[in-house]
Design a protein around this nucleic acid. Sequence first.
DNA 1: TTGCCTCGAGATCA
DNA 2: CTCGAGGCAA
Length: 672
Amino acid sequence: MLTNQDQQRMEQLIAELNEHNYRYYTLDTPEISDAEYDRLYDELVSLETTLGVVLPSSPTQRVGHTILSGFEQHRHLARLWSLDKAQNLEQLYAWEARLKRAISDYNAKNPSTPLPDPTYVMELKFDGLTLNLTYEQGQLIQAATRGNGTVGESILAQVKTINSIPLSIDYTDGVIEVQGEGIMTLSSLARYNETAEEPLKNARNAAAGALRNLNPAVTASRKLDAFIYNVGYAEGVTFDNHKQLQQFLKDNRFKVNPYIIYADDLKQFEDELIALAERRNELDFLIDGAVIKVQDMRTREALGYTDKFPRWAVAFKFEAEEAETTLLSVSWEVGRTGKITPVAKVEAVELAGVTVQNCTLNNMGDIERKNLKFALGTLVAIRRSNDVIPEILGKVDEELGEEIVFPDKCPSCGSELEQRGAHLFCNNKLGCEPQMIGRITHFAARDAMDIESFSIMTAEQLYRECGVKDPADLYKLTFDDLIKLERFGQKKAQKLLDAIEHSKTRELSSFLFALGIPNTGKTTAKTLADHYNSLDAVMQATTDELVQLQDIGLIVAESIVSFFNDPDVQQSVAAMLEAGVAPQTEQIATVASEDHPLFGKTIVITGTLPTLGRDELTKMLEACGAKVTGSVSKKTDLVIAGEKAGSKLTKAQQLGITIIEDEAQVLQMIEG
DNA sequence: TTGCCTCGAGATCA
DNA sequence: CTCGAGGCAA
C-alpha cells in the first residue's frame, strides 16, 4: 500500500538525490560523499520495489534495462542547422561583412524598426555528437541525434544515462527543445580504456558509438557527459538576447560550459582565439573551434537562414592537425560519370585520433599544383580538411621520388581517356565495369531510390553473378537468383527484394536524381519534378523550356535533353516502367478516387509524427480527396495525433472521434 | 575517410 | 562465435 508518508519520503529522496546529482555532475561541487549518496539511492530503490511505484524523475530511471530492438525516427520541432565556417581571421571578417550588409539591407527596408549594431558572443565548439532534447511539462520525453537536421534517431534511453542531463526541469509552461553536444571526456575515455577489452580510439567516436548502442547499460558504462548551448524550440518563453537564453538554461540546471565571452567587436576575440587554440590541449574534452554568434535575438530572427546556415552565427575552426607520412602509391579510380580520380595510399599514420591510410588527390591538376608529380616514396604532409577527408598538402622536403604517371587509357576498360579541364574521363559508358556498378549503386542510394541494405558490394556481386548491368535489371531479380549468391541467406534475399519492390513508388524527384543525369543533383531533380510533375514531360522537355526554370542554365538544360535523347537511357527507363516502377507525382495522386477510404473525410492533424512533416502529410491527405482542417469539431471524421499532441487530442477524445497515433497506420490508410 | 555499432551468414561445437 | 557488409556521424 502506498501511504502518504511513503509517497512523501520517496519524493523527498528523489529531490535530494537529483540535487546531489546536479551538484556532482553539473556544477562539479559535490556536498556529500559517494557512500552517503549510495545510501540514499539504495533507500529509494527499496522504497520503489516495495511500493511498486516509480516516478519519472527518479534517478533510478537513468539506466534502462531493456535492450532496444532499433532506433525510431524523430522529427525535430525546430530544424538543427549546420554552421557556416571560417578557417582564419580573414574569413571571419568576411562573414562579419556579410552580416553587416544583411543588417543594413534590413534597416533600409524597415527604417522604423532598425536592428542594433551587432554585438557578439563566443563559445566553444565541442567535438562530439549533437543532441536534441525535448521536455514536455518539465519532463524529458525525447532525445534525438541530429540526423539530416530535420529527422534524427531517437536515443532517449541512451541519453538518460548521461547524469548531467536533467530528467526533469523547472520550466513546465510548454514544450521546449534544447540542443547540446554529447561528449566523452578524455579522462573518462582513459579510465574506460584502462579496463576495457577493446580500447576505444578517440573520444568523439567513443561518444557517438556509445549513444548508438542498443543496450543503455553499455552507454551508461561509458560515462558520457553533455554541454547544452541552445534552445531550439520553446513554447511560452522568448529571449531578447543570448544572455537570457543562457540564464534560462542555467536556471533549468542544464550543464552550460562556463567558457562564454561577450564582445562588442570581433577584434576583441582575436587574441582569445589564438589563446584558445593553444589552450585546447589542456581541456578534458575535444573541441574543434569556437562558435561566434550575434547576441541580439531580434537580429537573429530578422536575418534568418540560408539553405544551410543561420546568417547570424559562424564556426571558427582551428587549424587542422597535420602529420607527415610516406606516399606509397597512387591508383586511378573510375566513378559513375566516367571521371578518373587519383587516390593515394600512404603509410598508416595517426592523425587526430584516427589512422589515415587513404587520401584523395582530386585530379591531375591538383597533383601538379602541389608539386607531387615526383613524390612517390617520399615524405608528404597530410591534414584532414573539413574535419573529414584526408588530403595531401605537399612534399615535406625537396627530395625527388618516383613519378606519378598520368594514365592515357582507362585503368579498368582500357579505352582512350579524354581530358576535360583538369579531369580525365573514360567515355566508354556501357562497357566500363566500375561506371556501370557506380550507376547502379547511385541509383539505389538513400537520396535516390533508397533501396536499403544495398550498396557497392551488393552491386558488384549482382553485376558479376546475376547480370545486373543496368539499374533496370534490378527489377528482374528473383528470390532464386539471390539465394544462390555467396553470403545471401533467406533473410537477406527477402529483405533486398522487399527494398527493391518498395523503391518502385518513390517520388519522381528521387527517381530523376537516381537516373544520374549529368550535372543534375538532388535540387535540380526536385525542380524538374515540381515543374513537370510527370516523367514523360521531363523526358520531352526542350532546352528552351528548361533554361526558363530556376537555377537551370544552358549546360544543365543541354545535359538533361541529351541524356533523355540517348536510346540506351530510353530503353532502360522503358524497362523500369514495364517492371512496375511508378515514380510518384502529385498529379497521379490528385486523381482522387471516390472509392478511397479517406475521400471526403474531414481530418485534423495535431502533434508531430516521427518522419512525416505536417505540410507533406496534408498534401498526401488532400490528394486522397480528404479535407484537412485546423480545429476539431463534431464534423471532424478523423484526428491524426503525433507526439506532443495538445488540446486538439483531448477534444477529439471527448467527442469520441477516431484517433490514429501510428504513422505506419496513417500511411496504410493513404494507400487505401 | 574512419570508427563504431548492428545484423545476417556461415562455421564450429554440442 | 567470427566475419564482413551496411548505416550513421563528423
